[in-house]
Amino acid sequence: MTFPRWIAHRGAGKLAPENTLAAFRLGAACGYRMYECDAKLSADGVVFLLHDATLERTTNGQGLAGNVAWSTLSRLDAGGWHSRAFAGEPLATLESVARHCQANGHWLNIEIKPTPGLEAQTGRAVALEASRLWADDPAHAPFLTSFRPDALMGAREAAPDLRRGLLLDSLWDGWLEAAIRLGCVALVCNHALWDASTVALARGAGLRTLAYTVNDEWAAERLLLLGLDGIITDRVDLFAPVD
């Protein structure tokens, strides 16, 4: 798995409205060549970018996002909550983000963020859409991650050639075995979970090591000393994305 070490969280961290094309453009302007984003399904099966299960925090919509058709979602303001400069910025589809990444030769880490109860279905749909969108650019094929093993299993069934990683916010019982069983190539952990022992366990299983969300210099220095393969950050204005 050869990706840039520095990864811009949700496009450009907190400097632009997360998961929008405006954020990806700003991340690129800061020199980043790889981005993390969150993908889920609309009620009519369109893969689009949104972190939360509900619309209120980052749009002017209301309710469970997965219950809304894309024709309605596409008209929402996903930028005004952030600042006036981004008012009117729409939600992004995975297809529009793929076009941006391919035009720039950049990479994407897609976190599968299913509406509760739709884990496997969302994993399959995101993987199939990603496989279709990057069919002519396999060198930049996206890296799929999720906290939900069922979503990763769905992705594996639909597009086994796409690389996968298990997200962890705690070291629950069987985490390493689950990553191996799911055919993952990497673990993506809360940065506080990484130490010499967990790095050794991951590498002993042939897994790459990535950390989220790293916004302080002391934390980045600690992880670099541990030799982590990837660092996901909001601070695209602080960290120069050098490998």
Rank of each mutant, 00 (worst) to 15 (best):
M1K: 10
R5S: 06
A8E: 02
H9E: 04
G13F: 06
L15F: 09
E18G: 02
L26S: 01
A28H: 12
A29T: 14
G31A: 01
Y32K: 03
Y35Q: 11
C37L: 15
D38E: 02
K40R: 15
K40S: 14
L41F: 10
D44R: 02
H51M: 11
T54I: 09
T58A: 09
T58M: 03
A65H: 11
A65T: 07
N67W: 15
N67C: 15
V68K: 08
L73C: 10
R75H: 14
A78L: 09
A78P: 02
W81K: 11
F86R: 12
F86L: 08
G88R: 07
E95F: 04
S96H: 01
R99Q: 14
H100G: 04
C101I: 00
C101D: 01
C101Y: 00
W107T: 02
E111L: 07
I112T: 05
K113E: 03
P114I: 02
T115N: 01
P116R: 05
G117M: 04
L118K: 14
E119H: 06
E119S: 08
Q121K: 10
R132M: 07
D136R: 12
L144D: 05
S146Q: 05
F147L: 03
F147T: 01
R148I: 13
L152V: 03
L152M: 02
M153W: 15
L162R: 05
R163I: 15
R163T: 14
L168I: 00
D173M: 11
A179S: 04
A196Y: 01
S197R: 15
S197T: 15
T198P: 07
A200W: 00
L201V: 15
L207I: 09
L207Y: 00
V214T: 04
N215W: 08
L223N: 00
L223E: 07
L224Q: 12
I231T: 05
V236Y: 01
D237T: 07
D243G: 12
